[in-house]
Structure formats: structure tokens, C-alpha cells
């Protein structure tokens, strides 16, 4: 035995050093693997909302609303969800890096793989309706910062000078074919719906977010030509000619955001 090996063995014996148990080692490895897995799942869900936003944007109406294509595209990008998706991809990478032999893969390969997996799983989640469900969940629960994103989108479609008004329904009077909308700057708009057909997938209920496209007839009144849901639906598989088609039911947001006055619905 050499002097060094002797010293090392003595230290091990004197300090009663024993190897970390197999169980602890395995637990640590699984911990990072499970975390990496969850980050991929969360990232994919964030991707599904991102797809939901982009796919349901009203790309046909941007020129009528006075946007250039580039300007509209930049405004349409849901930055909150983009950042959230990227954050989860980064966290998945961070967790993956702690796994055995992960260092053998290049950074670009790992990121590209995570991006592809998130895109694939996110598309699948979107197909099964996760995107709209999660968006509704964030909106209804006033998730921090999320209001800003929605407000940005409301402002984007709230351009009265171009005949676009967006907001939440606070009053419905079907006898007089009139709605009242509260826009992002908390201005109340009277909407004349007598010259438009309400699509089956638009719910004229209290707290629904809608967009009105039409003609401004006075300072706070608009004559609607089109009523559109806040997101450019109809949803996939929706048969617009069939009023009873369940696929046309818009994502409902039954809860009111705070500080919107109570309303009455007159039938």
C-alpha cells in the first residue's frame, strides 16, 4: 500500500465515510428527469395557448382595421405565452443538464429537440382544446401580468375611428336590439345590433368579450355590421349554419372581471 492510499483509507475509516446510498443516487437522478418531463409538459401547454392565439387571430381584417401586415403580426404575437414557452424550454434544458450523460448532447441539439417536442405536444394539446381552456383559466383568475396582454389585444381591436370596438358586454337589451360594451379605456359603447345577424358561436351574455365591426354613428354609439367573439372563431368543426351545433359554442368565461358594473339582461 502506498503512503497516499494508506492516508486515504485511514481518513475514510476515521471519519466513518460511507458511499451515498444507491437509493439516494437514484432518487436524485429521477428527480431531475421528472422535473425535465414536467417542464416539457408545461412548455407544451404554453405552446398550445400560443397556437390558439395565432390561429384564432383575425388575419382577414387587419387591413380594414388600419394595420400594415408587419404591424399587425407584431401586435398579434402573444408575448406572454411566447416568453412562458421559452422559459419552460429553458427550465427543461436546465433540468436535463443535471441528468447523467446529458453533457454529451450539444446545447443547440437539446434546445431544438425540446422546441420540436413542445411544438408537437402543444399542437396536440391545442387540438384537444387545451389552449382555449388555459387561456380562459388565466383570464378568469386575473393571473398577474395576464391582464396587460389581454388589454393589449383589446386595444388592438378597439379602434373606433376604423369602426372597431372591443370590450366586455355589460348590458343586453334584445327588445331594442342593443348592447352595451365596456371598452379597455372603460368607455361604455351602445351597440345597435338591429342590422346584423348574431353568429351562433357568439354568446351575447354578460361578461362575454366580443368585438364589434361597424359604423360609428355618434360619440358612443356604433351600428354593428359584424359581431365577432374576442377570438376569431368559429372553432374547428363548427357548422355556422346550424345554430344548435355544440362545436360552435364559444369558450365561455362565466366569471366577471373585477370592477365591471353589474348588469341586467332584458329579453
Amino acid at each position: 500500500m502506498t503512503e497516499i492510499s494508506d492516508k486515504i483509507l485511514q481518513t475514510i475509516k476515521e471519519k466513518h465515510i460511507i458511499p451515498t446510498s444507491r437509493f439516494k443516487v437514484a432518487l436524485k437522478n429521477y428527480f431531475w428527469a421528472v422535473l425535465a418531463f414536467f417542464m416539457v409538459v408545461f412548455g407544451s401547454l404554453a405552446f398550445s395557448v400560443l397556437i390558439f392565439y395565432l390561429k384564432n387571430e383575425d388575419w382577414e381584417l387587419y387591413s380594414r382595421a388600419g394595420f400594415s401586415k408587419l404591424n399587425f403580426t407584431l401586435l398579434a404575437i402573444p408575448y406572454f405565452w411566447v416568453l412562458l414557452s421559452l422559459l419552460f424550454i429553458f427550465l427543461a434544458y436546465y433540468n436535463f443538464r443535471h441528468m447523467k450523460f446529458a453533457y454529451r448532447r450539444r446545447f443547440s441539439v437539446i434546445i431544438l429537440a425540446y422546441f420540436s417536442i413542445s411544438l408537437f405536444l402543444g399542437s396536440a394539446a391545442y387540438f384537444f382544446g387545451a389552449g382555449s381552456q388555459i387561456e380562459g383559466l388565466f383570464f378568469n383568475n386575473n393571473i398577474v401580468f395576464y391582464g396587460n396582454l389581454v388589454q393589449k389585444r383589446q386595444e388592438m381591436w378597439n379602434r373606433p375611428e376604423q369602426g372597431f370596438v372591443a370590450g366586455q358586454i355589460i348590458f343586453v337589451d334584445l327588445n331594442n336590439n342593443e348592447l352595451q360594451l365596456l371598452d379597455p379605456v372603460e368607455k361604455v359603447w351602445f351597440v345597435d345590433i338591429s342590422h346584423t345577424r348574431i353568429p351562433p358561436f357568439v354568446n351575447l351574455n354578460f361578461s362575454q368579450r366580443i368585438r364589434v365591426i361597424g359604423k360609428i354613428i355618434s360619440e358612443d354609439k356604433i351600428e354593428a355590421e359584424m359581431i365577432k367573439p374576442f377570438f376569431a372563431e368559429p372553432l374547428e368543426h363548427c357548422d355556422m349554419s346550424d345554430d344548435g351545433d355544440d362545436d360552435c359554442v364559444l369558450i365561455h368565461r362565466p366569471q366577471m372581471k373585477e370592477n365591471i358594473p353589474q348588469l341586467r339582461i332584458i329579453n
Binding site: I4, I8, K15, I17, I18, P19, T20, V25, F101
Partner: peptide, 22 residues
């Protein structure tokens, strides 16, 4: 260097179960 080596081998012994035979 011998001191560093000694510490390194003690650390190695502690991590012996995490050594992957691959």
C-alpha cells in the same frame, strides 16, 4: 497536489454508488 488528491479520492469514495459503469 497530494492533499488535493486525497480530498478527491475521499469524494470519489463518497460518490461511488453514482459511478456509472458506462
Amino acid at each position: 497536489a497530494e492533499d488535493v488528491l486525497q480530498d478527491a479520492f475521499v469524494s470519489m469514495f463518497l460518490k461511488l454508488n453514482s459511478f456509472d459503469t458506462r
